[in-house]
Design a protein around this nucleic acid. Structure first.
Lengths: 225, 225
DNA sequence: ATCGAATGTGTATTTGATACACTAACAAAA
DNA sequence: TTTTGTTAGTGTATCAAATACACATTCGAT
């Protein structure tokens, strides 16, 4: 039908989605990569992603490819940027709509698949050589992550639903790469009125138990301040 | 070549760019629209934009279509968002990479062209019914414009290279839709160290002449604070 | 009972944001 | 030449927000 007609009029570019999935692992900001099973760049590491189906929503495509290639289920996902340099793929013209995603540190254990020889987490500062322009995409995603930290609530997406203030502070410290004052951090966080005590206590370790908090309204975890 | 091959494998979506061009006209934030010459939505108003050439950069496409359809030369342009709902175009699957653009109030006088029956500026709060999902795109662009106002220097893109502090304040007041205190505005703006006096004075009107300022480093007009 | 380890809490200081009113310089009119 | 209308230009006091900073508490293990 119409889609085909245009195909004959002049060539359409291919459209893919690629996902930059961050998680904190071993106290380090890490990115999920796959090792490419096919050419081009066979054997190299790349972002999970793939071609858009003709009737598929962009975000659905990103989620689906992430699942197919890494076995990781939906997480926080938002559109990052669309890359379309005519030379970014050596095969053909490809437009990549990229997504920025966050995962809790525990929803891990990626699996391999047909398109991906294997999937693995890499610390953000120890990335291997990457296929295509994926290095650039990751750097952009990292900047986005950092800038959203101050005015949004994305940090909670990197923690389980129940957490201690120390855990939360640790997320901020790892992302910002600086130490924060405990009293000021707690004061500021509680003043935002977005978390509340659950009444429970962490019973872990040979030290004083910590109060366990949760996000006040988990559905409305968006930009608040 | 490769692009064709994929075309036969499975259909590719079409890719377009659309541009939301803002300018301040008659003390009102306005958007440039074109009246569609062809189906679908013939006769309705829409954003300037069109199909991506196969070897063309996304941003080049946005600039080119803006020029072809409205006669307006390059201005400040940044990528806004990529819209890809499968039903957003009744003809076929179209991915639209949208751009957010600013123009000085004087680089005006849009011309008509083959694709656009005519082009015209509309006050942002008096938009006509729009084709496709272009209303949604404009609202997103407006939010982006407002939020960037506080932490970037985009306001200068809506003024000529030399301007008075009153003109600059007026831009902020129109965009924010609120009155600002003159002394605080000047204090805050000068504290950012991004504008400097030219030494010249506006010689306009039957009142005290105003100092004329310019941006310190016009090339580096980006996010500063 | 003591020790090690992480939790939890308040105040003083500094910095940035806001509120607020009058004089200066020009052109036009009287 | 004086008056009037119009916009430009300037400083301080107050309030709110961010920062710096140190010690007592609670648990498990020894």
């Amino acid at each position: 039908m119409a889609a085909k007609k245009h195909c004959y009029d002049y060539p359409h570019p291919a459209v893919t989605t690629d996902v930059v999935l961050f998680a904190i692992r071993q106290q380090t900001l890490s990115v999920l990569l796959i090792q490419r099973a096919n050419d081009p760049f066979q054997g190299m590491w790349a972002l999970p992603g793939g071609f858009l189906d003709i009737d598929e929503d962009l975000e659905s495509c990103a989620k689906r490819e992430l699942m197919e290639e890494t076995g990781i289920e939906a997480v926080y996902l938002e559109q990052l940027y669309t890359f379309g340099n005519p030379q970014r793929d050596p095969r053909e013209r490809i437009i990549s709509v990229t997504y920025f995603a966050l995962s809790q540190s525990d929803s891990l254990s990626p699996k391999a698949s047909s398109d991906a020889a294997q999937a693995a987490w890499f610390p953000i500062d120890e990335l291997p050589a990457l296929a295509f322009d994926h290095s650039e995409i990751i750097q952009l995603a990292r900047r986005r992550l950092l800038s959203k930290l101050s005015y949004s609530t994305i940090a909670f997406q990197m923690l389980p639903g129940r957490f201690t203030l120390s855990q939360l502070q640790s997320v901020y410290e790892i992302l910002l790469d600086e130490n924060l004052d405990k009293r000021n951090f707690r004061k500021g966080m509680l003043a935002r009125n977005i978390i509340e005590e659950t009444g429970e206590y962490s019973r872990s370790g040979n030290h004083r138990p910590a109060k366990i908090y949760r996000v006040v309204n988990p559905s409305r975890v968006e930009i608040i301040k």
